[in-house]
């Protein structure tokens, strides 16, 4: 059995740290076991793949490039005019998409291991992110369900608000340790805890 490893393994074992006022107002986690597929739609292909995607995920292809479409365990993001991400708990989804989507309608690329998913939760989550992303994260401007593509420490990230005090980042795997180090450094004055979340399971 080829065991799974993460670039954050050593870091997550490091434990948390109290902030300047003795509190811990941020929980930084790696979210594991999710799956990510990228679809690249060719000209005229949207009409072909939309019903296939909807049949497999229960969600229509999103029109907006800033809001997530959610159906059960599937989250759909329009990341470019002709490109979509599907984040899912379903390990079989990628193969189903590859099998059903005609090659002349869209490309299907599995990116599950290409991204590390990081959760930021707590009162300091928004403040920590504000040190890095030039986005107005005020809840009135960036409510739950909104996502944006930005950068942290020069590496591209996809950022989604998952709750009033919760955000998730999709970070390039080879930059993930570096990005995580930067987040920990930023979180120092706020205090933080570290942990791992599997899809549907949260562990300390």
């Amino acid at each position: 059995m080829l065991e799974v490893s993460s670039p954050l393994d050593a870091r997550l074992a490091g434990g948390g740290r109290d902030g300047a006022d003795g509190r811990r107002t941020l929980r930084l986690t790696e979210i594991r076991d999710g799956h990510l597929v990228q679809l690249g739609v060719f000209a005229g292909g949207a009409g072909v793949i939309a019903p296939i995607v909807e049949a497999l995920t229960g969600a229509p292809l999103p029109l907006a490039s800033s809001e997530v479409t959610v159906s059960g365990a599937h989250r759909l993001y329009r990341i470019a005019v002709d490109q979509y991400w599907i984040v899912s708990d379903d390990a079989a989804l990628a193969q189903a998409l590859e099998r059903k989507i005609p090659a002349d309608a869209a490309s299907v690329t599995v990116l599950s291991s290409a991204r590390i998913r990081i959760g930021l939760e707590g009162a300091a989550a928004q403040a920590v992110l504000a040190h890095h992303v030039a986005l107005d994260l005020d809840e009135s401007q960036f409510p739950e369900g909104r996502f944006a593509q930005s950068g942290i420490d020069h590496a591209g990230v996809l950022l989604e608000r998952r709750g009033r005090d919760r955000f998730e980042l999709f970070v390039l795997r080879t930059f993930a340790a570096s990005t995580f180090d930067v987040l920990i450094d930023t979180a120092l004055p706020y205090g933080y805890e570290l942990g791992i979340e599997a899809v549907g399971i949260t562990s300390p």
Partner: peptide, 18 residues
Amino acid sequence: GRQIGAHFRPTRRSPLHD
């Protein structure tokens, strides 16, 4: 700002780095 020392620029690590 914090872009000093180890944070001067991002570091890219292979999946085999550890």
